[in-house]
Design a protein around this nucleic acid. Structure first.
Lengths: 101, 101
DNA sequence: GGTAAGTAGTTTATTTTATAAACCAACTAA
DNA sequence: TTAGTTGGTTTATAAAATAAACTACTTACC
């Protein structure tokens, strides 16, 4: 996928519908909790859990697990690394979409 | 993935790096042959073959197999259905990328 | 107290998808 | 004739997404 025309490689971590959705939401907000993300993306909890792990492992988001009483509560926020990766992804995919600027 | 915020479902047929690359190339050109697409995308022939089949089966592209002597020659062109799907994909993913218009 | 139902999530298994490896057939050149 | 190249397809493997099952806690009701 390298060396071609004008098509650079798309970050495989972001080129996934659910992970991209999560990043898209997080980039516009200070932080969001697990339930909010699940509602907004309509993902199953299991799928969301897995994808948040991947984003977290990559350092794209920070996941904080706290307790409200004894009930767990998970909040996520995007990191500077994540913001950067998202920006690069946007630039790259613009090449595919024939969007200039 | 439906009913959320501003994030509609991304056409899974187009939300694949290689298939999107193929469509991106084909939308800008009358037609392109197998070799050209393989070079521009840097895909393996096997992978390209499979993905062209999927796009063709969906009616997004038309694949014409001819013979130059006895050597096979495959040319592809995008269909109106494909142009339409591509346009919708672009609109949809703009929501994820925070690109307006 | 006991049990049924709901919330908040994780782990694991299954399905789907992408990718690579192996292959077929023809051609080219030594 | 045989070794390498071109133009692909088919098949096997690796990786990814998704769903199902499960843990742990809470609330409501009898």
């Amino acid at each position: 996928m390298k060396g071609g025309y004008m098509l650079n490689e798309l970050d495989p971590l972001l080129h996934s519908e659910l992970r991209l959705a999560v990043m898209s939401i997080l980039i516009g907000v200070e932080e969001a909790d697990f339930v909010y993300l699940r509602e907004q993306t309509n993902a199953t909890a299991g799928n969301l859990s897995v994808q948040l792990d991947k984003l977290s492992t990559a350092g794209y988001i920070e996941v904080r697990k706290s307790f409200k009483g004894k009930m767990s509560h998970t909040t996520c926020r995007i990191t500077p690394v994540g913001i950067d990766a998202f920006a690069r992804y946007v630039d790259t995919i613009k090449g595919y979409l024939h969007i200039s600027g």
